[in-house]
Nucleic acid binder design. Structure first.
Lengths: 353, 353
DNA sequence: TTTAATTACGGGTACGTTAACGAATATATA
DNA sequence: TATATATTCGTTAACGTACCCGTAATTAAA
């Protein structure tokens, strides 16, 4: 530990060199009006010369501003624990930046009720936040919500899934197509000639089906590109209860006896695993997401691979990006695709979500 | 943006409630002497009651202390670009925390010259830093260095490889055994009956051979545990030039014509890839690390899988841990194993090192 | 009892920045 | 020319914490 030498590059030094007061320096730093062209240029050149960087600590400390950010993500349901992870990321970010004068208001909606989503967006808009983090499950409603945000000049960051209307400060989430493509690549190592591949889409009517389709598209694209024997079967299941799923699955396994690989396009893979385990099928099972129930089946050896895209990070990074944009107007990557992680029984214990 | 409401939980408020000055509050906060037992307890109970958390911004700003951290890692050689990544992580951390009054001095050693390592450690000790980040390639020398650090009460963090003497503030790096175990798990999906697996260790006499052995041990353990047909061949190559490597490889491929899987236990896998490409062997190649040359061979389809453990993160996290420990005495995970990432042609573009 | 030493505490300035307020100067309007 | 209105700038008090320095009160030593 050493005594710190007095900073020779702060506003004070700039003011001294320019023969003005620090208030004037402050004005040009935030290019507010009230400074003559001459002195402004003089000060700018000195700033350049010293290549001055403001002290972020002092900046936040002195700023009497409070930033209020709102987050809107699905509530955690019995249906799926997926949204636990992004929420944890949000909470971590909250903890880290709250002492910087940031207040984070968390809003949730029910993925089964569009009205709940719309309702929450209204409440959020009324609260006039400075920035918004949004997981847009319902596309149409999200588009009109974000359109309003842009009108009101409220920056927003999307996570988990993107929107067609553009204009977000950033999208942080998966590249769905490529994650399907990667899964296919994995499968290509595992499938032998004559064996069949089953794609399983499980989603409710209300779900964002587009998600699954994109993954399937990527998956199929790989096999098309590599002229692999087209032995892909697909099943769409629009019920999410275990019974229905098992009914459909046993039916298709009777129709096709040579299925060796099963690719489930979302995190409901554990339900398929349940079926596979009970029916003692010898297949390779690939699915999505680092959920407790999925990991359990992976440890048992029923699920072979999980593809995962750091959902916790998505929440965390989303908020941090908003904060940095608003507080320091630092540049933000317009599209930040999460890495496509491959989990197996042997590396899942080391995974950081 | 809203005006911030005046903080009602700072030292000032505590002082007001306790009927003392903030200086006294400050004394008990840092439990310095000069406070009577009575007032100390009174203040402590108020701190408890308000569950006061110091404002880190103000704390760093007001502190006239400068923390000096030293980093000692291998210099970037033509031999391998591996150490580029940790260095980048170090530089990123530097950028982020230098405005918090942290000065980072970077030292480098030549992996071919033990003396250079020893020399640098001496220079570092003379500079009396407040903390050290170390990549301990030479075990014996590192042990005696870190022993001295402990004597001098200088906390140190190890990255990339651990030391037997313990006492580090934290180890941040791979679990070598498990990364080998994972690789074997992958291989188990890919190998067919009767096919041979070749383990390739390439390292110089001076290198930390222990690294490779640990991975090999994990790799073999998997096959032992799963009673897989023992068809593992192994070759140790103690020269790192392309010519020697190719000589040894072609010899072993002549001896064993049924090698279908090659597992290279470190980042020199690109040299093996070069051989495989030229000799047009049809094998699955697995190796380590996200290096340019490796990625190139992966894109070409010569290397099938790379195992990687976020070397950049290691440098970054190492410094951040040191900083947080020293500045805020926040708790640090004693062992932080990096995730074991699996890279293929199809997800490497999205990888964050 | 006087003096010295020790203990307990408060005042006040500094860290680098923000921004409210008001003063001074320049320019426009009558 | 007198007055109003912009324009340009400086003074100053915060933000929450650290810590130097001085002083009053208490205790110990003479």
């Amino acid at each position: 530990m050493k005594k710190r030498v007095t900073e020779l590059t702060g506003v004070k030094e700039i003011a001294r060199r320019a023969n003005v007061s620090i208030a004037t320096v402050d004005r040009v730093l935030h290019n507010r009006k009230g400074v003559s062209k001459q002195t402004k240029e003089k000060i700018l050149s000195i700033i350049e010369e010293l290549n001055y960087e403001p002290n972020l600590l002092a900046q936040r400390l002195a700023s009497r501003k409070t930033l209020r950010l709102a987050t809107l993500v699905p509530e955690i349901s019995k249906e799926t624990s997926f949204w636990e992870a992004p929420l944890k990321g949000i909470e971590q970010a909250d903890k880290e930046i709250k002492q910087f004068g940031i207040i984070i208001d968390k809003y949730f909606y029910d993925q089964n009720k569009i009205e709940s989503f719309v309702e929450q967006t209204k409440i959020i808009l009324e609260s006039k936040p400075d920035g918004i983090l949004l997981a847009p499950s319902f596309i149409e409603e999200s588009v009109s919500f974000t359109d309003k945000c842009r009108e009101l000049n409220i920056p927003y960051v999307l996570i988990d899934s993107d929107l067609p209307n553009g204009g977000s400060l950033s999208y942080i989430g998966p590249n769905l197509y490529h994650s399907g493509y990667l899964a296919a690549h994995l499968v290509s190592y595992l499938v032998k000639n004559g064996e069949k591949i089953l794609i399983v889409n499980i989603s409710r009517e209300i779900d964002n089906h587009h998600h699954l389709l994109k993954k399937e598209e990527g998956f199929r694209a790989y096999f098309n590109k590599h002229n692999m024997p087209d032995s892909i079967i697909k099943i769409d299941i629009r019920d999410t209860d275990l019974k229905s799923i098992e009914k459909y699955l046993s039916k298709i396994f009777i129709e096709h006896t040579d299925i060796k690989i099963v690719f489930v396009t979302n995190s409901r893979v554990s339900k398929v695993a349940h079926f596979i385990e009970n029916s003692k099928k010898d297949v390779i099972l690939i699915g999505y997401d680092f959920l407790k129930e999925n990991i359990m089946y992976m440890d048992k050896g029923i699920i072979d691979f999980l593809v995962c895209q750091k959902p916790k990070q998505q929440g965390y990074r989303g908020l941090i990006s908003l904060y940095q944009h608003l507080a320091f107007s630092s540049p933000v990557e317009k599209i930040y695709f999460m890495p496509i992680d491959i989990l197996t029984k042997e590396n899942s214990a080391f995974y950081r979500n």
